[in-house]
Simulated assay, not measured.
Amino acid sequence: METANPIFRHQISADVIALDKQGRVILVADVRGSRVVKLTLSQFTSYLKATQTVVPFAMLVDPETIQIVQWDGVNWSEAICSLKTTDVVKPYIRDFDSYKRDYQHQQITGGYLEILLLAWLDDLAFHWKLETPPASKELAAIGLLERLDEGSTKREVEISGDTILRDELSHEYLYWA
């Protein structure tokens, strides 16, 4: 019996992705301090050029700053939007004042920061918590807010082109013959 070896085309691992309402990847995010292998913009560039995929935005997140850059098909822009991480995620932390008091010397990092980022992106898409989520005005100004409308998010994913190979809920891989 012959066994097939999987063929992996160019792929990327991302901490968080956002998809528009048609299911196209519109944003890849790298959350520094998470357990997923980190990617730099140069690695994102190699991936996008190799797959001839257009992912218009990248988000670089650390405990202090969220920076958003845009892909024009050839190069990444300088940061087109820079936000304070705490200002963006604090509405999604239950009893933020208690959290701040108990963890005053610790920053929000890793998986917890990823979860808070997902909550914010989902709120931007569906307004499940706030009528006007944090940074709505800034994201509208760069054209990202309308693309997030009624979209979805995924955490800890591997993608190839517009195909999601793996996400946090599925450790199954798609194979190509």
Rank of each mutant, 00 (worst) to 15 (best):
I26V: 01
L27R: 06
V28K: 06
A29E: 04
G33P: 07
G33S: 04
S34N: 05
R35V: 04
K38G: 11
L41G: 00
Q43E: 11
F44E: 02
F44Q: 01
S46N: 14
S46G: 15
Y47V: 00
Q52Y: 11
Q52M: 13
V55T: 15
P56I: 09
P63C: 05
P63M: 02
E64S: 12
Q70T: 14
Q70L: 01
S77E: 09
C81M: 12
T85K: 14
V89S: 02
P91H: 07
Y92P: 12
F96I: 14
F96G: 00
D97P: 00
S98K: 08
Y99E: 05
K100V: 10
R101L: 07
R101T: 07
Y103G: 09
Y103Q: 14
H105V: 14
Q106V: 06
I108Q: 08
G111E: 12
L117E: 10
L117V: 07
D122Y: 07
D122K: 06
D123H: 05
D123V: 11
L124K: 03
W128A: 15
K129D: 02
K129M: 11
L130M: 10
P134W: 07
A135I: 06
S136Y: 13
E138S: 05
E138F: 00
A141E: 09
L144T: 15
L148N: 08
E150M: 13
S152D: 15
S152H: 09
V157T: 14
